[in-house]
Design a protein around this nucleic acid. Structure first.
Lengths: 211, 211
DNA sequence: GTCTATAAAGGGATAGAC
DNA sequence: GTCTATCCCTTTATAGAC
């Protein structure tokens, strides 16, 4: 019954990270107090300092986790292409409605697009701090590589010719997804899913040629 | 010689706004103290509170200014199209290397891409606060409309057919520009100008068709 | 209209109890 | 391993001088 110390410690760590993930996304790093994070996690600041050494440590841990997250999803989507439009649509849904890592062992949470919020929050910190910047650069590198690889496989399987190098294409697709999500968040009606999917297809050279 | 009170007041206001623009971009809103803004502007907090009522007021003022900025540039660029690639390249340069409003009457400043930093910083605040969110939505609406109008003119003048509605195209072009800039900031080498211009052209239906 | 001095609050970090 | 209590610093905001 009684879990080991190690299990309990791991759980506390996870709870703190998830709480921080939520709060940093919704309120921002500086506007979130260490105590608020601890409280949201059902722990106290003592535990937080023991695990992460401070608020900054929490941010670094999130950044490291950041590198791994959502990469699988974004390239998996391309994989089994039946109707490309549907798949690209799902990809877009994932970006817009995406939750961050807060959905731990215990299931659903974070219905809104908090993924994007955390993404931007972490990006800002990565850009402002050279140390963290390298981590951020790595993250996007991994994302691009993953998507680029998926594009190559996809092109081979269906014997299609990519309109540009796969690395360049990956950069553009991710760019459009992010930039569209950016606008969508402020004004969803102005960025319908069809517009995004349409743009992605055009980038892939799949548009219906003009009349 | 002695300027009127009104002139001096306007100058103080401008100095404070420019200083806030810089600091909010580079350090973030919450990490910047009101006193730091005042000091950077060569004034004191007393003046700041008199003009803006507090740090929050400074943010709101910046957001309002935000709506107007950079819109002209982004659509002007499309206007006199000789070599489209060059123009799109200039557009990209403007986004990446762009300074914010800190280049007041006195000339050059802000060599790096602080425009993007402020853009993201303000976006985050706009997204988190419904009140500010409407201002942000307006900003992007105006940007899109401006670019959409320019696209229509451009298509008519050169008798080209746009591959999608001008509103949709504007959304996509701005999206790609932002998303690419986003990646570029963390890893410039991974996002060469050619890749961005190439993507923009493909979105405009101007790519060399696949073999 | 702007500055100086100060009050009041909030948050990060630590030490020691349990 | 986690919690409680506390110290100290920073920051916001104001009140009154110039």
């Amino acid at each position: 019954m009684a879990r080991t110390q190690e299990e309990r410690r791991a759980e506390t760590r996870a709870l703190l990270l998830d709480a921080a993930s939520d709060l940093f996304a919704h309120k921002g790093f500086h506007a979130t107090s260490a105590e608020a994070v601890a409280a949201a996690a059902g722990r106290t600041t003592g535990a937080l300092y023991d695990h992460f050494g401070g608020k900054e440590g929490l941010l670094v841990a999130l950044l490291e986790r950041w590198v791994e997250r959502r990469i699988v999803d974004i390239s998996e989507v391309i994989e089994g292409v039946d109707a490309l439009g549907d798949r690209l649509g799902a990809m877009w849904e994932g970006v817009v409605v995406g939750t961050n890592g807060a959905n731990g062992p215990d299931g659903a949470d974070g219905p809104d697009g908090e993924w994007l919020l955390l993404e931007i929050e972490l990006w800002l910190h990565a850009v402002r701090d050279p140390e963290l910047g390298m981590v951020g650069a790595e993250r996007f590198g991994v994302m691009r590589d993953g998507l680029a690889g998926a594009l190559v496989e996809w092109a081979e399987r269906y014997d299609l010719e990519l309109p540009a190098g796969e690395a360049e294409l990956a950069t553009q697709l991710i760019g459009l997804l992010l930039g569209a999500a950016f606008q969508h968040r402020l004004d969803p009606a102005a960025v319908p899913q069809a517009a995004v999917v349409d743009g992605l297809q055009r980038l892939l050279g799949l548009s219906a040629p003009a009349t």
